[in-house]
Amino acid sequence: MSDRMIKNKKGQVSLGATAFPPNGLSLKAGDILLKLWVSLGIPVAAFSIFIWLWSAGAASVQTSLGTLPGPQAVFAQAGTLWQEHWEEKGKEKEFYFKQREQNAQKLAQDPAYQVKARKYTGKPTYLDQIITSLITVFTGFVIASLVAIPIGILCGLNRIIMIAFNPFIQIFKPVSPLAWLPLVTMIVSAVYTTQNGGIEKCFIISAITVSLCSLWPTLINTAQGVSSIDKDIINVSRVLNLGWFTHVFKIVLPSSLPLIFTGLRISLGVGWMVLIASEMLAQNPGLGKFVWDEFQNGSSNSLARIMVAVLTIGVLGFILDRLMVLLQKTVNFQK
């Protein structure tokens, strides 16, 4: 112990800064319990309090559509939506089965009969709408990435290009999807005129609106990543005398991948958020349209169904973000 003691000027002995070791008692079991409580117990407790507050508070709010639904009502509606999906699928199956049977019958009576195949025209179920939303957001996200990454690379490589693009980035970045949508609608309607089948116009409008709002984080992060490559690595590229394309694809792109993926992750989050608004207005048959239709519908179940949608949007957004984190980890070479 004496080596831990230092004399102060009055000659008194005081303890040094070194801490004592634990007093021999095994703290292991306690440690584990504490960790479990922190990582699992607290979130569960917080969630329980939220549910309780929700069910207590909801009952006291009277809306024009009845009382605000509590957790039980929302849970019940989630079950109903799930059931409706399978009922609808059953109807669809039945429809196609009948159609096939009828066609076979008519063919048997008259071999010259032209077989008619009609599409089932039932309304899309909640699960169909989720899938439409996911496809729309991915389409918008891919378009955004295909535009943002190359422009970001050019901006990062060349200061002049960066200065040229900067005002556009600064001005268009904060624009809301609701402002873009009317413009996009008019332009798509004017340009995309093929009516016979193909891709739905409302899908294109939603996807383009998503990309217009979500390309900025990727663009900015890519430019940042490219312009901040280690000077030594640039020197290696110069010493090896790499050509422009090799330089971009073998040096610039890999070394800025971590930041590009950070940008992509933010972009996907923004895209998912923007998607709901643009689907509402463009009437793309996804989650946004579901919420809007339920709102217009105004049945006693509507509010509970909208709450199901809110929770679905939240959970899916969370899952998308986790997927991007996983992707980001696979490209991160500086572990």
């Binding site: 030594d232 020197n235 290696v236 110069r238 010493v239 090896l240 005398n241 070394s255 991948l257 070479f333």
Partner: peptide, 30 residues
Amino acid sequence: PGPDRGVVFQNYSLLPWLSVYGNVRLAVGK
């Protein structure tokens, strides 16, 4: 800079996303 002068830098300056083979191979290919 040119391929007639090989340079070894103080801080290695290897490309961290390429293996040993990949780093040497990039130079050979060039």
